[in-house]
Structures are given as C-alpha cells and as structure tokens.
Lab assay of single mutants.
Amino acid sequence: MEQGTVKWFNAEKGSGFIERENGDDVFVHFSAIQGDGFKSLDEGQAVTFDVEEGQRGPQAANVQKA
C-alpha cells in the first residue's frame, strides 16, 4: 500500500485526487473509499491506498483513512 495526502475531493461529484509520497497525483473515486457511511475525503487528510490502472490512467483503490 502507498501513503498519501488528499489534494482535493469534491463530495458532490464523488471524486478528487490524492498526492502520492512518491510519484504523480492519483485520481480517487468515492467507490474506492473503504468504510461505512458517507464516503468522502477531506483536503489534507492522510490516507493509505493501492494503485490500479483505470480507464484514464492510474487511480486509487482500497482507500483507507490513515
């Protein structure tokens, strides 16, 4: 798993970007967020995640709040 920080997340659209510790920013969709309840992330929040190849390039998967 990688570690990173939420660069921004739009709760209305359900997507945003995570700033990786090593590498380019990666797209995140709300469906990749693990946990119960409303799936959203806050700017500056620390997260851990896997990276998968999506239709438009790398994207975060199995996102967990650190």
Rank of each mutant, 00 (worst) to 15 (best):
59 Q>I: 11
66 A>Q: 12
21 E>S: 12
4 G>E: 02
30 F>G: 00
32 A>T: 04
28 V>C: 08
11 A>H: 13
19 E>C: 15
49 F>P: 02
23 G>R: 07
51 V>C: 07
51 V>E: 04
28 V>R: 02
57 G>Q: 03
39 K>G: 04
51 V>F: 07
61 A>R: 12
37 G>P: 06
22 N>V: 10
53 E>L: 13
50 D>C: 14
40 S>L: 07
58 P>H: 07
65 K>L: 13
55 Q>E: 12
52 E>Q: 12
14 G>L: 04
45 Q>C: 09
47 V>G: 00
47 V>R: 03
19 E>Q: 14
11 A>P: 11
19 E>L: 14
20 R>G: 05
66 A>N: 12
41 L>Q: 01
7 K>H: 07
12 E>I: 12
64 Q>E: 08
32 A>Y: 04
66 A>I: 15
26 V>E: 00
22 N>T: 10
48 T>V: 10
24 D>A: 14
8 W>C: 13
11 A>K: 15
44 G>I: 02
5 T>N: 08
56 R>W: 15
11 A>V: 12
49 F>I: 00
25 D>H: 11
47 V>F: 04
2 E>D: 07
23 G>D: 08
66 A>D: 09
50 D>K: 13
64 Q>G: 08
65 K>M: 10
11 A>R: 14
28 V>N: 01
23 G>M: 08
44 G>L: 03
41 L>M: 05
60 A>N: 00
26 V>H: 01
38 F>H: 08
34 Q>P: 06
21 E>M: 12
3 Q>F: 15
13 K>V: 10
42 D>R: 15
33 I>Q: 02
17 F>A: 02
54 G>V: 06
41 L>D: 02
63 V>D: 03
63 V>N: 00
10 N>P: 00
36 D>K: 13
45 Q>A: 09
36 D>E: 12
62 N>I: 04
20 R>A: 05
42 D>V: 15
8 W>Q: 04
12 E>Q: 14
1 M>W: 10
32 A>I: 03
56 R>A: 09
32 A>H: 06
24 D>I: 12
28 V>Q: 01
66 A>E: 09
64 Q>P: 02
16 G>M: 04
4 G>F: 02
42 D>T: 15
55 Q>T: 13
44 G>H: 07
7 K>S: 03
22 N>H: 11
40 S>R: 09
35 G>V: 10
12 E>R: 14
20 R>N: 04
25 D>A: 09
7 K>G: 01
1 M>D: 08
39 K>S: 06
65 K>P: 11
12 E>V: 13
54 G>M: 07
50 D>S: 14
42 D>P: 07
27 F>C: 07
35 G>M: 13
16 G>W: 06
13 K>E: 07
46 A>M: 12
65 K>I: 13
18 I>L: 08
27 F>H: 03
39 K>R: 12
60 A>I: 02
29 H>K: 04
36 D>H: 13
49 F>C: 02
65 K>F: 11
15 S>V: 15
66 A>F: 12
59 Q>P: 04
39 K>A: 06
26 V>Y: 02
57 G>I: 05
64 Q>C: 09
38 F>W: 14
6 V>Y: 00
45 Q>P: 03
45 Q>K: 03
33 I>M: 04
46 A>N: 09
19 E>R: 15
14 G>F: 04
5 T>V: 14
28 V>H: 02
11 A>E: 07
39 K>Y: 05
27 F>I: 02
62 N>W: 06
24 D>T: 14
49 F>Y: 06
4 G>Y: 00
5 T>R: 14
39 K>T: 07
42 D>W: 14
43 E>F: 12
65 K>Q: 09
39 K>I: 06
49 F>R: 00
57 G>L: 05
49 F>M: 03
59 Q>N: 05
14 G>V: 02
4 G>Q: 01
25 D>F: 13
5 T>D: 02
8 W>H: 04
32 A>P: 00
36 D>I: 12
32 A>D: 07
47 V>H: 00
24 D>N: 12
23 G>L: 07
53 E>D: 11
40 S>T: 14
52 E>N: 08
